[in-house]
Amino acid sequence: NCGIYFPEIKRDPGRYLHTCPESVKKWLRQLKNAGKILMLITSSHSDYCRLLCEYILGNDFEYLFDIVITNALKPGFFSHLPSQRPFRTLENDEEQEALPSLDKPGWYSQGNAVHLYELLKKMTGKPEPKVVYFGDSMHSDIFPACHYSNWETVLILEELRGDRDGKPEDSEPLEKKGKYEGPKAKPLNRLSKKWGSFFIDSVSGLENTEDSLVYTWSCKRISAYSTIAIPSIEAIAELPLDYKFTSFSSNNSKTAGYYPNPPLVLSNDGKLKTK
């Protein structure tokens, strides 16, 4: 309740937030009904997380997730040792005592990926359960989850919104298409007049030579640390749960992992250079 930002969000969340599409909530329920363990990991504090999720997902949002972790302090959640970042219980959104380990699903604060993975082993009965982690930050989500925890990662990349209308090619079978509900997302300005493209850059050549196109640092990080990249969860929500995505690791490709299609600016992939 302090400051300007939080009281304003609390007073009128509909002014700043979009509700979650029904297709995404249905997708979450389908995953849970299929026996998947669903986790929500956020660096937001529990009271703010609850406020947002109740508006976005509904008052019963907690039933969608087996484990909720708030104040996760990413990327440290992945890189720190358990002794440096123990899990803590919550009481009325206030952090309580530190836990020596994580023994059961529930709502926790802070924590670390090591103890979380041990809990997943116990819950699944598998020695190496496979984790697919969705995130929209390369710094806080994708790189640390891939590098430190070796999890499969799905980058939610808003720069893909509106590219090719955000839909798969017509050649793909209808039953395998993800689709958007409501109006199309407004395309972002992927070619900033100030910064240039998010994906490629032009490097001046030597005298009497042409400029060459190269992948940007951000573009190279996407293919290096993401399993796939998507414009939104809504883009895949109506795909079959057993849909087989093509990953960036396929043939060491820098474009294969973009779903539903690579960005248009990467269509000349063969002419691009890595520097």
Rank of each mutant, 00 (worst) to 15 (best):
D141F: 00
P168V: 13
L116H: 02
C49I: 12
F134D: 14
F143H: 12
G106S: 03
K122N: 08
F77M: 07
I41H: 04
G76S: 03
L157K: 04
L51S: 01
P129R: 14
E158Q: 15
A72E: 07
E172T: 13
G58Y: 05
N150S: 13
N33F: 02
Q96R: 13
E97R: 06
G162D: 02
K104P: 02
L90M: 11
W151P: 10
L38Y: 11
Q110P: 00
N33P: 05
F77D: 05
L116I: 04
V68R: 10
E152I: 07
E54H: 10
I37Y: 15
Y108E: 02
T70M: 04
F78K: 07
T70V: 14
A72F: 11
E94R: 08
A113L: 07
Q96V: 10
M138I: 05
I37V: 14
L51M: 09
E94G: 09
Y148D: 11
N92E: 11
F65L: 07
I142T: 03
G135D: 01
S171F: 06
P100A: 11
S44I: 09
E91F: 10
D163W: 03
I41R: 10
L102M: 06
L155I: 00
N150A: 08
L51D: 09
P82H: 14
E54R: 14
Y48V: 09
P144I: 00
D93Q: 08
L99W: 12
P75D: 04
S46E: 06
D103Y: 05
L119S: 01
D93I: 05
E94Y: 10
P82G: 10
F61P: 01
L90F: 02
C49Q: 09
M138C: 01
V132A: 09
R50M: 08
R50K: 14
A34K: 11
S79N: 00
S149E: 08
S140A: 04
C49L: 15
L51C: 08
Y108G: 01
R50C: 08
A113D: 08
Y63P: 13
W107R: 13
M138P: 03
D60R: 06
L40P: 03
N112V: 03
L31Q: 13
V132E: 02
H45Q: 15
L81N: 07
D136P: 13
H139C: 03
C49V: 12
S149Y: 03
P168E: 13
T89I: 03
A145S: 10
N71F: 07
K121S: 12
P144W: 00
E152R: 02
T70G: 00
S44M: 04
E62V: 01
M123C: 14
K126Y: 13
S83E: 13
